[in-house]
Write a protein that binds this DNA or RNA. Structure first.
Length: 580
RNA sequence: GGGCGUGUAGCCUAGCCAGGAUAUGGCGGCAGCCUCCUAAGCUGCAGGUCGGGGGUUCGAAUCCCCCCACGCCCGCCA
């Protein structure tokens, strides 16, 4: 809804400008958006266009703003949502009218969980997580998975059809080492599969450093796996499946589901990799260096090796085949990758271009490290997501015990679980991807800070108002949902009410921003701000004890807030508890 | 050595791409608020050389250059 307000403000601005005759032929489309219209604490939408005009017209910005505004009357009359345009110093401020507040609530009620959708079309193949099947997911993978999952949810919200894929790197050296370890030392059957695998992997990695023979055996395994040796394939399967199903279990707990798991080895077995090599030889500069096949790429510090001298393929080549296949499945490809993949993903993009395949859009996120330094699966130096989940849920359970002794054990566990998962996801989602993170257990276990529980609590508060209202017969219930009464939105004139509606209206604006930038942290912030604004409303505006007409109006506002909070939480991959 | 990224109060973080109205919030600290819809809440106070230095501009956390610190990459690893 806020997007609509912005559009109307933009139309009004253009109209005023042309009526003012201040400048001819302004190339509107080329102006930076920030110069045109932005959110503002001083108005509903604000423009700093006057700064730009000032330099063209050689007049002070505030004069330009004043001149422009004198021609805004028609546009304001025409606009359904804007009631006033005012020059405040050099700024041109737009103020939403009564109708905007009314329309916002009306549309939330009408559209329900579709509110905030953008109606975009197209199919996106989104690859995320894709951790090596050599052990459990750790907090680094968690960042990938969280970013990917929130993006998938938001893109779907925006209207896209999204298929999420997990690329299973079953052909890498690491997996070979894990398979070797499993073969030599066995897998601890008492442990969760992925944890058993990493144990063997770590042990084998240590052995590898000491024994040349061990290294050769690992390489031999890789060759035989690529060749399809049935005995080796069977051993691989066991390790990879164990690791992968462990990871899937963890992801399920986090509310993350992939639509498809694609095994890297598939592209070797089905001949795609061979075909890619052939196509590249025909269309690009591929040379032989010491028996290996190398792709020369201009502008890169490093060439891309496509095939080892022993004839086996490399990660990049298989990834190339994977992307060529993926490109046919949808209109856009998005890959969520760690910073370490940046160079290789650029080389991949170039190689794809050579082959006439549109390259993926890449979302790069920076590393998650531990206070003691970087994580390493191979060295067994990492914090597993399973461990984190257990500890955070235990901390959440402590809090629930303290706050809600009235809950049944079952209820306590359920709420602790919802809060725990939310807290973990929020801590990751709130940070911009390009920012390096240091994982800190103490901070992760802090349930007091303004994270997911804060937003979930606001939702629970809204729910409990509606629940009590239903018990008093102020609202009707149907299928677990509430049917708020007819109401007069003009009664919602207090600043805390206005501020709340204004915030609710911004869901589409935030969804659009996340889709455009492919950065989920905007949504995390939005959830927090909506919760904050609701809490202020809660303080200032009694709902159940208000006069009946005002009560009805406020019940509608609470209902709409609950809807927006629930939808925001859902997009962040968090549950919205009715009580907590 | 080169490439990319990050550096904002004791700690974490938004804003940077598209320069403009008093730099966003949180944690921690201090002081208040439950006869009233869940205090996992609300209000106020303290705390800042926006890593450092130049430059561009009427105006720089934001753009440009240099430097410093940290991370990632620069494998016939993935």
């Amino acid at each position: 809804m806020f997007l609509k307000l912005k559009q109307e403000a933009e139309a009004a601005l253009r109209d005023s400008l042309s009526k003012s005759g201040l400048v001819e032929d302004l190339e509107w489309e080329k102006l930076p958006e920030s110069l045109l219209l932005e959110e503002s604490e001083h108005a509903d939408v604000s423009s700093s266009l006057a700064f730009f005009l000032a330099s063209m017209l050689k007049m002070p910005p505030k004069d330009a703003a004043a001149r422009l505004v004198t021609h805004a009357a028609d546009a304001v009359l025409e606009s359904k949502l804007i009631s006033e345009v005012r020059a405040v110093g050099p700024y041109i401020n737009f103020y939403a009218g009564e109708n905007f507040f009314q329309e916002t609530l009306r549309r939330i009620k009408e559209e329900g969980c579709d509110f905030g959708s953008l109606g975009l079309r197209g199919k996106i193949i989104l690859e995320h997580t894709s951790a090596n099947p050599d052990g459990p997911l750790h907090v680094g993978h968690l960042r990938n998975a969280t970013i990917g999952d929130v993006l998938a949810r938001v893109l779907r919200k925006a209207g896209y059809e999204v298929e999420t894929q997990y690329y299973v790197n079953d052909m890498g050296r690491q997996v070979a080492v894990a398979v070797l370890g499993a073969d030599r030392f066995g897998l601890d059957a008492t442990k969760k599969g992925d944890h058993a695998v990493v144990e063997a992997y770590v042990r084998a990695s240590r052995a590898l450093e000491e024994s040349e023979g061990f290294r050769r055996e690992a390489e031999d395994l890789m060759r035989r796996y690529e060749a399809g040796d049935p005995e080796v394939v069977r051993k691989y399967r066991e390790v990879v499946e164990k690791s992968l199903s462990g990871a899937r279990e963890t992801l399920t707990q986090l509310g993350i589901k992939h639509d498809r798991f694609v095994w890297e080895s598939e592209f070797v077995r089905n001949g795609d990799v061979r075909r890619v090599l052939k196509a590249l030889r025909e269309r690009a500069e591929v040379v032989e260096e010491g028996g290996a096949l190398v792709l020369k790429l201009e502008g890169f510090e490093k060439e891309l090796v496509l095939q080892r001298s022993d004839g086996t393929t490399l990660y990049s080549t298989r990834d190339l085949a994977y992307h060529i296949w993926k490109a046919k499945l949808g209109d856009r490809m998005i890959d969520v990758l760690g910073k370490d993949h940046e160079l290789v993903s650029k080389q991949l993009a170039r190689a794809l271009e050579i082959l006439g395949v549109p390259p993926p859009e890449v979302v790069i996120f920076e590393f998650v490290s531990l206070p003691t330094g970087s994580m390493s699966t191979r060295a067994g130096k990492f914090v597993a997501v399973d461990e984190l989940l257990d500890k955070v849920e235990a901390a959440a359970l402590d809090e629930v015990e303290k706050r809600r002794p009235d809950f049944s054990e079952e209820q306590k566990r359920r709420v602790a679980r919802i809060i725990g998962v939310g807290a973990i996801r929020y801590d990751i989602a709130k940070v911009s991807p390009e920012k390096p993170m240091v994982f800190d257990f103490e901070q992760a276990l802090d349930m007091e800070k303004r994270g997911a529980p804060f937003i979930q609590y606001a939702h629970a508060r809204a729910s409990s108002i509606l629940r009590l209202a239903a018990e008093n017969g102020y609202v009707q219930r149907s299928d677990g949902d509430f049917l708020p009464p007819d109401f007069d939105a003009t009664l919602l004139s207090m600043e805390s009410e206005r501020a709340l509606i204004r915030e609710l209206s911004k869901l589409d604006y935030v969804v659009e921003k996340v889709v455009r930038e492919l950065k989920p942290h905007h949504l995390a912030k939005y959830g927090r701000v909506v919760a904050e604004t609701f809490n202020r409303f809660y303080r200032d505006c009694p709902v159940l004890n208000a006069e009946p007409l005002l009560r009805d109006a406020r019940l509608n506002l609470v209902y709409c807030t609950k809807l927006v909070l629930k939808e925001t939480l859902r997009l962040l991959g968090m549950e919205a508890p009715e009580e907590m």
